[in-house]
Design a protein around this nucleic acid. Structure first.
Length: 476
RNA sequence: GGCGCUAUCGUCUAACGGUUAGGACGGAGCCCUCUCAAGGCUUAAAUAGGGGUUCGAUUCCCCUUAGCGCUACCA
């Protein structure tokens, strides 16, 4: 049974890199018919915050993907410590009593270990520990018995590292708290994780993890490291320097559809290799495979002016158009409220939705695209907008008066009736349809760019239309 | 500094060692059209550089360069 895990540490809000890792794990689990574990890696008590924990749950819930099992490392510290001491008992780890500050430089470059500490006899080590001297428990990297560690990554292939280049990493801190490496491996083993999909920044850590798994005498899970998500400035995506543009909640608030967002992120570092772009959740599950994951980092294309990658926006628009109108109306309601149109009813919104569903790219666009449907009064507009192409104020006035007359008298206020009545009126005035429609559109919508006229009039209703026509006449 | 990974249009990506190097977003243009969208068509735009191997390299190997990662009692 395939078991995967997503293991965020609650030291900041959920950002898109984390979301992408979660998505890949989820897709893999579902594709395999396996289990998705969410594990909160909160062993860094100094940096953990409740706020970021909440943000992680909030972000993940918004994705509408879900998980099957939930664990918190802070509930499992005994397990981690037991595992660490088991390694110590096997002689594969040792106590390091050197204070952390003066790091000893190795001539070859990196730090390897504190001289003398590896060789301490068990008796000496026990004696000093019993005397209360603080220590860090370190893994004894087998530099003499083994030349290199080999990792067979499902994405990066065979990667090797000389043991001579691997430092004696810590398992337990002087506080007794497990380090990330210790806690992560002990949990992966205990939770029977079969496949680890995580960011490429962990590829180099995997050598240490192989050593821990072997010392624990458990099978090494398969690993598949994912290329990193980069910012346009070339830096790794960071909450600290790139700010809220990388927060999942920013996308939610702007009105991305969760499945569109998932679709977008799935295409960063992975390809179905058949030119498919827009894919439903089900299609992604069906198509997802480790073979489609590539090895080079992907840059998210955002700028200071526009925080969203144009492709993400396009994909969102595509999913929006594919959405059933009732569901779109339902998803739109919070954004209508957010835009301040508190008088909006579900019925009214539902009537408007067909007119805007091909015209919005983000759900929050409803606020700017459909404002004139909701507001009693139009925002002030330039009366010059009322003047049609190749026309003048007098023509605008004629059009508006004629429109008033026709629309007041028309037997029904539906698309077909309005269409023929207004086209007939245009003929009468010897005007092109466009010249006839523009003044009306501006009078009624307050701007030139708006949904098709007849549908708009129909939704607005005769009273509102007539009132706005009068107002416009007053402006000329 | 040491070690590891990576390198195809601006961005995301495709291409058993043999293609006019394909698709998508974005850009430009045209069409459709009551405006805006949507849609249709057309178009510009890439194999980092240098060596090999091969009849033939985007593809395999080496070097250079660049980027990223790891090098903590952070994860």
């Amino acid at each position: 049974m395939t078991r995967v895990r997503f293991a965020p540490s609650p030291t900041g809000y959920l950002h898109i890199g984390g979301a992408r890792t979660f998505i890949f794990n989820w897709l893999y689990a579902r594709h395999q018919g396996g289990v998705m574990v969410l594990r909160i890696d909160d062993t860094d008590v100094e940096r953990n915050t409740q706020t970021s924990l909440d943000s992680i749950y909030e972000g993940l819930r918004w994705l509408e993907l879900g998980w099957d099992e939930l664990y918190r490392q802070s509930d499992r510290l005994d397990l981690h410590r037991q595992a660490a001491w088991a390694i110590f008992e096997k002689g594969l780890a040792y106590r390091d009593f050197m204070p952390s500050s003066p790091a000893i430089e190795n001539p070859s470059g990196g730090w390897l270990f504190h001289p003398g500490m590896r060789e301490l006899s068990r008796e000496e080590s026990d004696r000093r520990a019993n005397a209360g001297e603080p220590f860090v428990l370190r893994f004894r990297v087998p530099r003499e018995s083994r030349a290199e560690i080999v990792v067979s990554d499902r994405v990066y292939g065979t990667v090797t590292k000389a043991t001579a280049d691997l430092e004696d990493f810590a398992l337990l801190r002087s506080t007794g708290m497990p380090t990330y490496h210790m806690a992560s491996c002990a949990d992966d083993a205990d939770l029977r994780i079969t496949d680890i999909l995580r960011g490429q920044e962990h590829l180099a850590n995997t050598f240490k993890h192989v050593l821990i798994f072997e010392a624990l005498n458990v099978p090494v899970p398969n690993t598949a490291h994912l290329p990193l998500l980069m910012a346009p400035d070339g830096a790794k995506l960071s909450k600290r320097i790139h700010g809220p543009v990388v927060s999942v909640t920013t996308y939610r608030d702007a009105g991305f559809l969760p499945h569109a967002f998932v679709n977008f992120l799935s295409l960063l570092g992975w390809s179905p290799k058949n030119d498919r772009e827009k894919m439903s959740r089900e299609e992604l599950v069906e198509l997802f495979s480790l073979e489609g994951i590539n090895r080079s980092n992907a840059t998210i294309n955002f700028t200071d002016e526009d925080p969203f990658d144009p492709k993400a926006v396009w994909l969102n628009a595509e999913h929006l158009r594919a959405l059933d109108l009732d569901e779109l109306a339902r998803r739109l309601m919070p954004y209508v409220q957010q835009a301040g149109f508190t008088n909006a009813t579900p019925e009214k919104l539902r009537a408007i939705v067909p007119l805007i569903h091909e015209r919005i790219r983000l759900l929050r666009d409803i606020g700017s695209v459909a404002d004139f449907f909701f507001s009693a009064e139009l925002r002030p507009y330039d009366p010059a907008e009322l003047i049609p192409q190749k026309g003048d104020a007098a023509m605008a006035a004629r059009v508006l008066r004629k429109a008033k007359e026709v629309l007041a008298a028309v037997p029904g206020f539906d698309h077909g009736t309005l269409d023929s009545a207004l086209r007939a009126a245009a003929d009468e005035l010897k005007l092109k349809a466009g010249q006839m429609f523009q003044p009306i559109r501006v009078a009624v919508c307050g701007r030139k760019n708006a949904p098709p006229l007849f549908e708009t009039l129909e939704v607005l209703g005769r009273d509102t239309v007539l009132t706005r026509l009068d107002l416009a006449l007053g402006l000329i």
